[in-house]
């Protein structure tokens, strides 16, 4: 096998692994946003961790926006890498 082919193969595998992990992180993040919106226990944990003084209901929409945006972005980025793997393999 030529060095160039080997590099391409490693790159394709790396793109697949990183893409899959990133997509899973994205899905889990959106799932977390869903749980955060509906589960009081998770909300309390989140409030304590971030040391938020204001009532969580007031700041929750902004956090949900950030978390869901991050989740969607991760899924898109991950899918682009998986697409690269499909083209390179």
């Amino acid at each position: 096998m030529r060095l160039g082919d080997l590099q391409m193969k490693i790159r394709a595998i790396l793109a697949l692994v990183v893409g899959l992990i990133q997509s899973i992180i994205g899905v889990l993040t959106i799932g977390f946003a869903y749980v955060l919106n509906y589960n009081d226990g998770v909300r309390k944990f989140f409030k304590t961790m971030l040391d938020i003084e204001r009532p969580i209901e007031e700041v929750l929409p902004v956090f949900l926006l950030l978390i869901i945006t991050f989740g969607f972005f991760s899924i898109i980025s991950g899918l682009l890498l998986i697409h690269e793997w499909r083209k390179l393999r």
């Binding site: 790159r11 790396l14 990183v18 890498l81």
Partner: peptide, 13 residues
């Protein structure tokens, strides 16, 4: 993971 994803996306073929 995101560092690797960033590099792979930037150096896309």
């Amino acid at each position: 993971v995101y560092t690797l994803a960033g590099i792979l996306n930037l150096l896309t073929k």
